[in-house]
Design a protein around this nucleic acid. Sequence first.
DNA 1: CGGCAGGGAGGCC
DNA 2: GGCCTCCCTGCC
Length: 279
Amino acid sequence: MPRKIKLEEPFDLQKTLECGQTFFWHRDGEKYYTIRNGGLLKVWQEDDKLFYENYGNRIDPAEVLRIGDPLEEICEEISKDNFVSQAIQENRGLRIINDEFFHCLISFITSAQMQIPRIKEIQDQLAERHGKNLELEGEIYHQFPEPQRLSKVPLEELKDLGLGYRADYVKRTSEMVAENEIRTENIKKMKYEEAKQELMKLQGVGDKVADCVLLFSLDFLQAFPIDTWMWKVIQEKYPELNGRNYDETSEKMRDYFGRYAGYAHEYLFHYGRTCMDFE
DNA sequence: CGGCAGGGAGGCC
DNA sequence: GGCCTCCCTGCC
């Protein structure tokens, strides 16, 4: 029997899951599902009602989908100018979600110079080959591999999956996480700058990937990742905030938008990709 | 088909 | 620190 959550604030499930910032949700008709920590979560939306089914270990949809984030208040706070206000209006209900840390990390390491469909495909392949099998409702689902297991996959196999030069990063980062050089519970307690430095110790994690992982899996809502799309948006719409390098620009964006700068990023990113005509 | 795509590392200065 | 080149692969 599906359970129901009455949505008190704007929420657009499709936009949120298909915005291109999360790589382990699957679509099945009107429903979306994900697998983590020994559980399967299915969700679907009808107007202001969110339905869900949970099999295996419990996954809290409110936590995963950040339904508790006070979106009205957040949007009000980040509406610093007409452009971002427009982006918010066009994408009402778009939210940031809370991905599982290790999977999020590996996805964004994989994402360097890659298209979204291929990133998803590689994640799925890794899960199929090396993830735990979950048999639920008569179907087999594959969980994303544990760090320990992923660190043991031969380099050649990773390369053959299409990871190319990123295969090294995936393997070494998996080793580092498996050896507990990174503990998410510790990172969550750190200040933003410190947490970012901690993540950047990992192989294949630079400024952009670190900001993505902080924002999409570690609750740092002030993180403002800058990819090539965002550089274009900044150059065109926020030239006065364009600094000399990544660090400086990203800091200016955080100062400008405030503690929920990550949400501003989400709206600008989506708006830039779908509505802006560069050149 | 050549060039390029939703970055990062490593070398050089 | 800033700048440059290379990295693999699929796709247009």
